[in-house]
């Protein structure tokens, strides 16, 4: 199964496919962020794979200048009982990626969470608002430059 996915992706998306790796039995593929919707649609619609369930969308902040963020998708195929991880690097200067809500509806809130926590915006998302933090909040808490103790004055407190 693992080889099949990698070879099919290489064959069909030779330009977008960057690399693949297996760690502790988990297969993950790195792809170009421009083709993320195409690849996801292919993996969901193709009769061979049928990755119908998107379990998780999240991001990692690597705290480096080039390709600062990685957006990570975990998708599951009921047919093969197989889980695949898709990664796409996002640069801080061009901090956006196409939304996959058109492929999996369930990613709506998860992408909102990533937007809230990391400040990565999702193109073509129908309802991109913050989900946990208040709308007036300016920062993105899960970025590595956001201190654990918070930023004084970032949330309005009652007057003395």
């Amino acid at each position: 199964m693992q080889e099949l996915i990698v070879s099919k992706l290489k064959e069909n998306f030779s330009e977008a496919f960057i690399s693949s790796s297996i760690y502790m039995g988990d297969l993950s593929v790195n792809v170009d962020k421009k083709s993320i919707v195409k690849i996801c649609t292919y993996l969901k619609e193709d009769k061979e794979f049928e990755f119908q369930l998107c379990e998780d969308v999240t991001a990692i902040d690597w705290a480096k200048t080039k390709n600062r963020f990685t957006v990570v998708y975990h998708i599951f195929s009921f047919k093969h009982k197989f889980r695949l991880r898709i990664k796409a690097d996002v640069d801080e200067k061009d901090c956006n990626i196409d939304s996959v809500t058109s492929v999996w509806k369930t990613t709506n809130w998860q992408e909102r969470e990533v937007y809230d926590m990391f400040g990565i915006s999702f193109n073509n998302h129908s309802d991109l608002r913050r989900i946990y933090m208040p709308e007036e909040f300016e920062h993105h808490p899960l970025r590595k430059d956001f201190p654990l103790m918070g930023i004084p004055g970032s949330l309005p407190l009652p007057k003395k």
Partner: peptide, 10 residues
């Protein structure tokens, strides 16, 4: 949502 957000991931 978010009334019980404690930032466990952070």
């Amino acid at each position: 949502l978010g009334y019980l957000h404690r930032g466990y991931e952070k």
